[in-house]
Amino acid sequence: MLLEVLQLVIYGLVLGSVIALGAIGVSLTFGILGFANFSHGDLMTFGAYCAFLFYSQLALPFWLAFPLALLATALLAIVFDQLIYRRLRSKDSVILLISSFGIALILRALIQIIWGPDNQVYASGIQMPYRFFDGSLRLKPDQLIILATTIVLMVALHLFLQKSKTGKAMRATADNPELARLTGINTEQVIIWTWVLGGSLAAAAGIFLGLDTRLHSGMGWFLLLPIFAAAILGGIGHPYGAIVGGLIIGVVQEVSTLFIEPNYKPAIAFSVMVAMLIFKPTGLFGQKKT
């Protein structure tokens, strides 16, 4: 029983890594640009398929395909921002939300057109999992890669946010956009950097999800709910909160399968989110504005 729970916790951390990487971007864009980005899931999907293009189709080595996919996704996010969101910035945030909903569709359609409607995998063949405790605890090599790379990415993110001037300005803007502007922070530049971060981490999340399961055009969209849940749980605009929120949602979802039908996992994320919104809408780490 204990090992069973432990196994689920490990799976939860793998899923949680994916959710957390997605939630960082959602939380930052929500905090800095002021709208809930409904296209973030599809940005993840795009990243996953870019890696598919570079790695599986063009046969580049994975260490090269991975950063290329991150870069491509970040660029695409910036293009959408400059082409569409920037022109809508003066409008009500709800208009931006609706527009992001449209971009989600455009992205998904493009992915289907370019890569076809069928499921894909990065590499076929079955991986032998590592076994512990006489096989009652298992971990696939891919999952180990996911966990390790997530840690590397988060350390890099941490250094960027804590040490660089742009990183600090980004946290400041996410915390209080108006104060940031009147302090003289160049918010347009911060926004570009936010998309670089959000886009590339979304791509990483998508790639990991594709690695752990398989690629299909709706993969990111269907993860949007737990991602929003994680971002809200951690407090909008708090990247560290998003990480913790993502890991919590991931673990809770997996462990919940002990008690409920696995099909209803997303309902758990939803319940956690609604409870949070009702009882402490600022999130675990957010503070009330004075």
Binding site: K168, R171, A172, A180, G237
Partner: peptide
């Protein structure tokens, strides 16, 4: 709302 709440005192000053 005149401070960046999630930044340290020193980071506020740096901003």
């Amino acid at each position: 709302n005149n401070v960046f709440q999630s930044l340290t005192v020193e980071e506020n000053l740096e901003m």
